[in-house]
Amino acid sequence: MSQIQIKDQIPTGELMSSGHFACPGCGGSLAMRLVLKGLGPKTMVALPACCWTIVAGPWPQSSVNIPLYHSPFETAAAVASGIRAALDMQGDQETTVLAWAGDGGTFDIGLQALSGAAERNENILYVCYDNEAYMNTGIQRSSATPWGAWTTTTPAGHPEARPKKDILAIMAAHRIPYAATASVAYPVDLIRKVEKARAIRGTRFLHVIAPCPPGWKTSDDETIELARMAVLTKIFPLMEVEDGQTWRFSMEHPGDPVEPYIKRQGRFSHLGPREIGQIQLDVDARWKMLERRVEMGI
């Protein structure tokens, strides 16, 4: 079949309901929908402050049909650890405890709790849906914001000056059994990773790129295309790391030029050919490093 048919590989159950308050074209909402398809109804989620605080619905609503605990910003992994402990005491080994955090809650304010949980190898699945800035508060830079990007705290005159934090390597360094990246443009890969993670005991980490039309200054309808281009350009390669040691690419990455991806996003509109060239160089260099990791296992 020439068309990449995926419908048979996507579980049909829906644990997310319509009427949620995400912006149109929200990558993070789709990420939750797909992850829950992979996890099924025996799932509990610890939800720190992030866009999903809103998306999950105001009291007395909930947009997901699983137990969800709204938690302080920096506590996703810790609250999840507590939920897990309680379930352990109840003899429930079947339910997956999901920590669901944005990039701010993962890369920045929640990193300590995440590191603690990962180091203890808490039996939780931590998913970071990454929209590359503090979007819920109105687009402020986070340590997941890519080099060169505009945000309200990195204005175009002085855009983000540091590369995105390598969270996958950080998590791998904890020697957790499973860490991976995924993209909402590749639902089969994403769900496969979720299902794989679900079957593993210990801390599992999934980093999902989730484009944000208002924050990236793109059209609402470009979300999936951008999530796809991020992968195809090697800006956000799809990878898996087992036991912190075995690195693997999940697919062939053609290495499309970064320029079309950059040019489509308003948050990069101030960048000229030189800066875009620099991004390409950085992507290429990082790719070489990833290839070495895959080859050698670091």
């Binding site: 605990y69 302080p72 506590t75 810790a78 939920i83 300590q112 590191s115 603690g116 808490e122």
Partner: peptide, 27 residues
């Protein structure tokens, strides 16, 4: 017979207690 979570901070200690207590445990 209890699960003892050796957290990395008091902040996480209380957060973990919140998760556990919310899930019905005596924390």
């Amino acid at each position: 017979a209890a699960r003892f979570i050796k957290v990395e901070s008091e902040h996480s200690a209380m957060a973990a207690c919140i998760g556990a207590s919310a899930t019905g445990a005596r924390a």
